[in-house]
Structure formats: structure tokens, C-alpha cells
Design a protein around this nucleic acid. Structure first.
Length: 559
RNA sequence: UGACCUAUGGUGUAAUGGUAGCACUCCGGUUUUUGGUAUCGUCAGUCAAGGUUCGAGUCCUUGUAGGUCAACCA
């Protein structure tokens, strides 16, 4: 059989081209370079799947490199969560590295640049420097310190390093071109003074390298062949190349930066700043709130690593701005869970059914498959008795032919149990149905093989036995925002679109087999959706998150 | 009054000058002891105008639209 040719994305095409032009395959090396200043989200997952996917595809190593050059924002907590998330997604990095590992090397190279007359110390205020920088349409002007003698620069830079200056008083700048059409080339800052404790280097340094100076050189040190980042860094590429060229030795590989469009998802926001805002203002319970688009939020919500990987592959990558429909993500998790989740029964909005011809005090345990349509899931015993709960919406006193559920005088099948017929109902003073009285057909037990058990009845309902049901808190989620692109409105704040009903907490009844479920166990609650055990679960209280509801074509018809 | 990037069904992505395809969404049929799943199908697209070419989504020109760039952030 001929293997189907899979089309390449534009980055794979670039790599193929490089290989065709003589780059040896064993020189291929990638990296995922997060700044440890927040939690990873589904957009990062795109980058992770992309870089590690390339590693797998080309049998090339992929480094996990923490871009930790700003001690003001970075914390060990974030490092730990990032490592956990990458592992959880199912990827293995070659080396765990930190930009801060290269502080000494970067410093030495900076000294070299000063000696070559390619860098200088500027002691103007940031306002003055900003003014000289110009704008995208106006050229910049030179700093009065631009031609400071090399010896003086060297001495000042050393003083900066030794902590002899205040924060903000001096910077080291690359001497490139203040009239360059690219703003990033107008004598960019290489080092600033920051008298802050660093999560790894402690107080060893009080000058810290800027992103641009750090990133290309780190790629070069690690001999990354393809340094893949998002589109907003496109204009940094000139500078990336300039910096690398200052230290590039032709016997080594010269890394190449290429950019792709970041992944956006409909009905949510993706910037770390905005996500942080949601957390800090208490609009969600934390970074791992199941409504958050973070990896930890999705995990807690019940998403599987495979579903997220599959989403990334399916969505693909390109260079155009995009807002991917969250329906695709939901499709991916439903697709995975449909194949892997055991099916059980839970009633979220209960009404009591009394089976009047079932003997009082009697109970029986019915064998129920965890999955009727696939092998290997096994089964459990589900208790049945005279009183059960069904969903309120599964009963109507009267309804037309399209209503396949329980109505007076009609029959339905109870999943894994008997066929019952509604005879009458009891209502409270508000007209709400409080009890439904039914009779059952004792010969109709599921799987018993009797004539009666094979009767075709149109509806099948899920249920739990009143006596055996266990209580569970079920958290039902809706999208966090009511707008498709909450941060896409110039005149409105993204928080104006917060959905006030994004979380509904329900006291539900679940079948007793669920009693000992553990955190992150995933189930299909039949006819309702996929649910996942939440970490708030204790030995006395079960808590479930609804990952995603099942498709409900009846709800659409009924409206 | 700049430079750079991007424009393919509602959404996301292929087509590497040669039949515009795939997935999601929507809608409909079949199957079904989940109104689920599965399966079959329908609707729907190359931003515009010129040019090159036997042939253009692809190359060129000019528009138009969107995005990015002026942190001692990354």
C-alpha cells in the first residue's frame, strides 16, 4: 500500500529545503523557550506540539529552555508548572536549560562587543533615549554617549556589573544604527540594572541581559537549528541575526529564526496579562479554573493530553491571524473520550419515579456494561429498586410524537433495566411534578433474552436508584465569555463580555459505583456529557466537572 | 504618512504554475437499548482590478482590508 503523502506546513517546508541544501539531519535541533512568568495555555500547546512534533518527525532533540532574564516577573512556581504541563502533554525534552545559565557567557561577549566598539554605556534617562529613538516613520538621532571611548565604556560596564549604579541609571546599548528603518536596530538595550533576586542565580547579578541579546545567543550556544517563535517577533529577526553574527564562528551552525501565527481560540482570551487579571481579580478561582484556557485549567476540566495534541495537529499552523472555533477543541475531547471513557449513570435534575408493581423493600443488582459498543471496558453491578430518580425533563404529562421520553400512558426503557409505563403523577401546589407513578414489565429486563426484553420502545432513559444513589456536586461550565473575540473590541474591555452564568453548581445523584473515583477520573454520564472528578473531591464529598456536554439534537428540535 | 507580514467556504488548514481538497460548524438521511456514537449526504471558498502564461489560488503590478513595529517586558 502506498503511503499517503502528508502535506507539510510552511516550517516543515523550510526545514526540508535546508536539508536539501546540505544541512545534515543530525544538526537539526529545536527548543521550546517559555518565560516562567505564568502558566502555559492552549496557545503555548501549539508551540509545544509544533517544536516537539518536529523533534519527533526528524528524530531531533528538543530543549526546554526557560527564558529567565527578568527576575522581576519570574518565579520557581511557574517553572514547576511549565515542566509539569509539558510532561503531561506527553513530550520529553532533551535538556532542561535556562537562559540564566548563560549569564557569564553573555557578559563576556558583551565585553567583547564593547572592545570592538560595537556597544556603549548610556546614562541618559529612558525618556531621553525614547525621544532619540524616533518613531516608525521618523528616524532616530544619536545618543550623546554613543561615541564614548572604549576604555570608559569598559569601566562603566564593570561598575554596572559591580552594583555601583542605581537601577535605571545606566544601560549597555548595541551600537548599530539610529536611522535604521527597523526600530529594533536603533541601538537596542543589551543590559539593564536590576537589583532583584533571581530565582536561580540569586544575587549573583545586578545587571540582566535583555530578551533580544539573550535569545539568539542562547540558540547559538545550544546550536538550535530552527528557532521558532510567534509572528510579533518578526521585526526582531534583523536584530537576532545581528547579535548572532557578532559571535558566530563559521565552524558552528548559525540558528535561524522563523515565525508563525499564534493560535487564538474563540470565546476566550489568551494573553498572559489578561489571564493573570482574571486570576487576580477573582473572576476565576485560579490558573487552573476549569474555565481557563490554560493547560492546567483544561486538565482539570477533563481534557486529555491526546485531545490537546490532536487539536494542535488538526488546527495546523500558518502565518495568518486566526481565531480557531472552540468547537474544534470540543470536538477533539469528545472524540477522545468517546473512545476511552466508561459510561455510567447520573441524574442532575432529579424527579422521583415510583414503580408501583415492584415489591417494596426489594432490590436487585443489574449487570451493566461500561461501554455497550466497545470491548475491554468491563461492567459493574447497578442497584435497582422500587424508587428511582430520572431527569425532570425526561417526563411530560403530555407530548407529541417527537417526544421519545416518558409521558402518561407510554412506555420507555430504563437503560440496563426494565421497560416502565407512566400511569399517573403527583404535583405540588405550584403544579410541579414531584412523583411519577409507573408500572414495570418484569419480563423486560435488559439482556435477559426474553420476548418482552426485545420489545422496541422508542426512548431509553438513564436513572439512579433513590436508596442507593450517592450525592455529588457537579460543576457545569459554560464559556467564560459571551463574545467570540472578547479582546477584539477597541472600545470595550474584554471583561465586559464575561459570562455571568459560566458556572452552575448542581447537587446531583450518581450511581454508587462512582463512590471511590479518584481525581481526574473521566466518565460519560450517559445522555448528558463527559465528566471528570475534580481535585476538590474528599472522602465524604464527590465533585465532578462537566468537561463537555454530549451533542443534543433534541434540544435543538425542541426549541 | 514608513517598513514588514498576511489575505482560500461560517471557522481552521491543504493544493510547491496543471482536477480548489480535508477537518470543524450548520443542515438532512440511515443505524441505534445513549435524541450519543457510527455512517451517508447537502450547503458553502481563492479580497479586487489589471498583467505574464497554453494554463494562475499560486508569479508580477496596483489597489483594498487586517496585523506587527516606537518597554531599562518576553
Amino acid at each position: 500500500m502506498e503511503e499517503e503523502k502528508k502535506s507539510l506546513n510552511f516550517l516543515e517546508q523550510i526545514i526540508e529545503e535546508d536539508l536539501a541544501n546540505g544541512l545534515p539531519q543530525e544538526k537539526l535541533r529545536f527548543r521550546f523557550p517559555p518565560e516562567p512568568n505564568g502558566y502555559l495555555h492552549i496557545g503555548h500547546a501549539a508551540s509545544i506540539c509544533l517544536n516537539f512534533g518536529l523533534g519527533l518527525r526528524y528524530n531531533a532533540p528538543v530543549n526546554l529552555r526557560f527564558d529567565d532574564t527578568n527576575p522581576a516577573k519570574e518565579e520557581q512556581e511557574y517553572v514547576d508548572s511549565i515542566k509539569h504541563d509539558v510532561k503531561w502533554l506527553g513530550f520529553e525534552w532533551d535538556k532542561e536549560l535556562y537562559s540564566s545559565d548563560y549569564f557569564q557567557q553573555l557578559f563576556d561577549w558583551a565585553v567583547q562587543l564593547i572592545k570592538e566598539g560595537k556597544a556603549y554605556v548610556d546614562n541618559q534617562s529612558s525618556e531621553e533615549m525614547a525621544k532619540q529613538k524616533g518613531t516608525p516613520t521618523e528616524l532616530g538621532t544619536n545618543s550623546p554617549n554613543r561615541d564614548r571611548p572604549i576604555e570608559e565604556n569598559l569601566a562603566l560596564f564593570l561598575q554596572m556589573k559591580n552594583g555601583e549604579f542605581e537601577e535605571g541609571s545606566h544601560v549597555l546599548r548595541a551600537k548599530i544604527d539610529m536611522k535604521h528603518v527597523n526600530m529594533h536596530m536603533r541601538d537596542p538595550i543589551m543590559y539593564r540594572i536590576l537589583k532583584k533576586h533571581h530565582h536561580r542565580t540569586g544575587n549573583d547579578w545586578c545587571i540582566y541581559p535583555m530578551y533580544d541579546w539573550t535569545h539568539g545567543e542562547s540558540d547559538y550556544i545550544e546550536q538550535i537549528s530552527h528557532s521558532i517563535c510567534t509572528l510579533e517577533f518578526k521585526s526582531h529577526r534583523d536584530l537576532y541575526d545581528w547579535y548572532v553574527d557578532q559571535v558566530y564562528d563559521t565552524s558552528n551552525l548559525r540558528p535561524k529564526q522563523r515565525e508563525f501565527a499564534r493560535r487564538n481560540l474563540s470565546y476566550t482570551v489568551m494573553s498572559k496579562r489578561k489571564l493573570l487579571q482574571l486570576v487576580e481579580e477573582g473572576l476565576v478561582s485560579g490558573w487552573d479554573d476549569p474555565r481557563m484556557p490554560t493547560i492546567s485549567g483544561l486538565r482539570r476540566r477533563g481534557y486529555t493530553p491526546a485531545s490537546i495534541r490532536n487539536f494542535s495537529d488538526t488546527a495546523g499552523i500558518s502565518k495568518r491571524d486566526n481565531v480557531t472555533d472552540v468547537a474544534l477543541l470540543e470536538h477533539c475531547i469528545k472524540d477522545d473520550l468517546n473512545k476511552t471513557a466508561p459510561r455510567v449513570m447520573a441524574v442532575l435534575d432529579p424527579v422521583k419515579v415510583i414503580i408501583t408493581n415492584y415489591p417494596k423493600g426489594e432490590e436487585e443488582f443489574l449487570d451493566a456494561n461500561y461501554n455497550d459498543y466497545a470491548e475491554g471496558f468491563g461492567s459493574r453491578a447497578v442497584p435497582f429498586s422500587r424508587e428511582i430518580y430520572i431527569e425532570k425533563e425526561d417526563f411530560r404529562e403530555e407530548a407529541n410524537k417527537k417526544f421519545f421520553r416518558l409521558k402518561l400512558g407510554k412506555e420507555v426503557r430504563l437503560k440496563n433495566a426494565y421497560i416502565i409505563k407512566a400511569e399517573s403523577c403527583v404535583k405540588d401546589e405550584n403544579g410541579e411534578v414531584t412523583e411519577i407513578h409507573c408500572t414495570y414489565d418484569p419480563n423486560s429486563l435488559s439482556g435477559s433474552g426474553t420476548e418482552a426484553s426485545k420489545r422496541k420502545v422508542k426512548g431509553t432513559l438513564h436513572w439512579v436508584s433513590v436508596k442507593h444513589a450517592i450525592n455529588a456536586e457537579v460543576r457545569v461550565y459554560d464559556r467564560l465569555f459571551t463574545d467570540e473575540a472578547p479582546d477584539g473590541h477597541k472600545d470595550k474591555d474584554f471583561k465586559d463580555f464575561i459570562n455571568p452564568n459560566s458556572l452552575t453548581i448542581i447537587d446531583a445523584f450518581v450511581e454508587p459505583s462512582l463512590k471511590n473515583s479518584k481525581n481526574l477520573d473521566r466518565f460519560q454520564f450517559q445522555r448528558l456529557g463527559y465528566f471528570c472528578v475534580d481535585k476538590d473531591t474528599t472522602s465524604t464529598k464527590l465533585v465532578f466537572n462537566r468537561t463537555v456536554p454530549l451533542r443534543d439534537s433534541w434540544a435543538k428540535m425542541d426549541n
